[in-house]
């Protein structure tokens, strides 16, 4: 097949298929599930940031949620204070969070494993307190109100009446597709190979002439840009505030990436869908059991944690790895 010889063309082909499927699927769903699907598309960008950072270059960050917050605030402030369009605000969100990633990367390039995890966790805790520190700018605990606005008229004339959730989905998916495409191209490029070399053996990579710290910083920049875009979209659903980007959001991205498969785009896709729909799925499956609210509220967390543990112990390659092996048999 000629597409095998040209990975960029093959990637484009798959992404277009993905976009078409989501657009068609999205039109028929009820508003709740349209909203959920939109969240999947938003978080997928965040999970891809983990795929790049942890899966590809072997660095861990528990602060991706904080970088999402950076993107969220950047876009909200752009829209509210500069009156720019949502699309421009998203671009600015990417740039600002990438710059935050640059700063973080300088510190991170010197750190490994647990040190990096701890430091980024402290970052995730510290950053939201800025929202209160500069309340007049960031709106304190309440946050800033932003939204996706109204769908353009040409879209309505193409699809008919478009609900708010559906518009969230339709506005997000093209950006998700761009992120997928960018990730696929990075993974198959020379840069991706250098990142993997660093992940697999830092000293060997450096002997082969890979500049380890520059590449680590670069990974952080790219990954942070992804997280920022994801966070900006996530905030556009209504509010950009500390409660929208809690620590658990960082863990959610990480869980999604691990469960789906840390090393592949397919894994990121499966993982983001899983973490968004898992609570619904559990609710649906346990409805006949009539569980108390107390149990029901914590069941998704428990099952998520157990799945995470089972995955790292028994199947560290995640679901994508299982499917891949199955296909090859």
């Amino acid at each position: 097949m000629s597409s095998h010889k040209n990975p960029a063309a093959r990637n484009l082909f798959f992404v277009i298929i993905f976009a078409i499927v989501i657009f068609i699927l999205g039109a028929d769903l009820d508003p709740y599930n349209q909203g959920q699907l939109a969240v999947v598309s938003m978080l997928l960008i965040g999970v891809l940031s983990v795929t790049l950072l942890t899966g590809t270059s072997g660095q861990i960050s528990l602060g991706q949620g904080a970088l999402m917050a950076v993107g969220g605030y950047a876009s909200a402030l752009t829209i509210l204070n500069l009156g720019l369009s949502m699309w421009l605000a998203l671009a600015i969100a990417i740039i600002v969070s990438a710059m935050a990633g640059l700063l973080l990367g300088f510190a991170a390039a010197r750190l490994t494993g647990p040190y990096l995890a701890g430091t980024t966790l402290v970052l995730a805790l510290a950053l939201p307190s800025l929202a209160n520190r500069f309340e007049s700018v960031f709106g304190g605990d309440v946050g800033l109100n932003v939204d996706f606005g109204n769908p353009p008229s040409w879209l309505i004339s193409a699809f008919g009446e478009i609900g708010y959730e559906q518009w969230q989905l339709y506005a997000t998916v093209p950006l998700t597709c761009l992120a997928l495409l960018a990730t696929a191209n990075i993974l198959s490029s020379r840069t991706g190979r250098m990142w993997r070399a660093i992940r697999d053996n830092e000293s060997a990579a450096s002997l082969m002439g890979v500049n380890v710290s520059t590449n680590k910083i670069f990974t952080f920049v790219v990954s942070s840009g992804f997280a920022g875009l994801s966070g900006a979209l996530y905030g556009l659903r209504g509010i950009v505030g500390p409660s929208v980007y809690p620590i658990s959001l960082s863990l959610l991205l990480l869980t999604g990436a691990i469960l789906g498969g840390l090393r592949s785009i397919a894994g990121a896709l499966i993982g983001s869908a899983l973490v968004v729909f898992l609570p619904d799925l559990i609710e649906w499956a346990t409805r006949p059991l009539a569980l108390s609210e107390q149990i029901g509220n914590y069941l998704p967390g428990l099952i998520g944690g157990v799945l995470l543990l089972l995955t790292v112990i028994l199947n560290p390659g995640g679901i994508a790895n299982v499917l891949h092996h199955h296909k090859n048999k």
Binding site: T54, I60, T112, P114, R199, G301, G305, L308, L309
Partner: peptide, 24 residues
């Protein structure tokens, strides 16, 4: 790098399990 990273992820999984259990 992954041998350093994966136990961190596992410990977060344990944290999630313990907190959910305590909540229940």
């Amino acid at each position: 790098s992954m041998r350093a990273t994966v136990p961190v992820i596992a410990s977060l999984g344990i944290l999630g399990v313990l907190q959910s259990l305590a909540g229940m």
